[in-house]
Write a protein that binds this DNA or RNA. Structure first.
Ligand SMILES: [Mn+2]
Ligand SMILES: [Mn+2]
Ligand SMILES: [Zn+2]
Ligand SMILES: [Zn+2]
Lengths: 137, 137
DNA sequence: CATGCGAATGATAACCGCTATCGGAACGGC
DNA sequence: GCCGTTCCGATAGCGGTTATCATTCGCATG
């Protein structure tokens, strides 16, 4: 794998943020430093970097993929209001995995756990809206 | 919600199988009993039935949605070789959920856990292939 | 330093699962 | 039977992703 300037800038941007950007968002970030880059190059390299184990691809059912500079095991929690994705450390997962392996007979090589709900910011916003609404009524 | 013949046949087929079929696969099943049904009707009703809580939509990152007649909480395990999806009962999940809620500050309303690996059938097939290969070399 | 070859890039077309749209049919309360 | 509402079938459109292909780049080698 050649480390071209495009590739290393894409890797750098992914590692710099903790926001789990989509391919489009990575494209925007990378274009600030490399205005002539192609979206195809971004997709290609996100894939190459994932297969090289340098980043993680985060598959979120029903919405565009996101990419993650953290490659250690962790859980994602997604906000149903604003779409942000945050990290949560986990320990139970290893236990669950071995249990699933035993019960199902599968040889497990990976998992994908995502909780969905409303993030603290959006909860606050919602409380604000409710209060304002009550006040005016 | 009217229970049309299309709708009830779609529900029946979903409930009858344990294979977690995709929309296309449901379409094939339903056409055997209703040859003039439209794929749009299948998609529409899979959505309506999900929102009515009669079936579950299973989002599997990176591959088409599947549908499930089981509506109780359970985990899915997917085979990376053949794509089949099996059920696994779970208890740890509730504990993990409340922990994630506390740590992240999110108000959690759902989750999505999927393990991926190789199913027993495919493991057997792979062992067979290896044995044959060794024998001929 | 010139040469050559495989890998990577940029531009863009194609793909695929899904959703929206729309005219017409079916349902069901009256 | 009439009429508003819901649903249907057919099909066009959409969005994220992948494939294609001509061109350029990186780099080993002479
Ligand atoms: Mn993460
Ligand atoms: Mn299931
Ligand atoms: Zn939020
Ligand atoms: Zn299998």
């Amino acid at each position: 794998m050649r480390m071209t300037s495009q590739r290393s800038i894409i890797l750098d941007e992914i590692r710099k943020t903790h926001a789990h950007p989509t391919a489009d968002e990575v494209y925007v970030l990378v274009r600030r430093r490399l205005p002539r880059v192609s979206l195809a190059t971004v997709y290609r390299n996100l894939d190459v970097l994932t297969r090289a184990g340098l980043i993680r691809t985060v598959e979120l059912g029903g919405c565009p993929r996101r990419y993650d500079g953290r490659v250690d095991d962790h859980i994602h929690v997604r906000c149903l209001e604003c779409g942000r994705v945050d990290d949560v450390a986990d320990a139970l997962l290893a236990r669950a995995r071995s249990r699933v392996e035993k019960v199902s007979g599968y040889s497990i090589s990976g998992h994908h756990l995502e909780f969905a709900g409303v993030c603290p910011d959006c909860q606050r916003r919602a409380r604000g809206r409710r209060r304002r609404k009550n006040a005016e009524s």
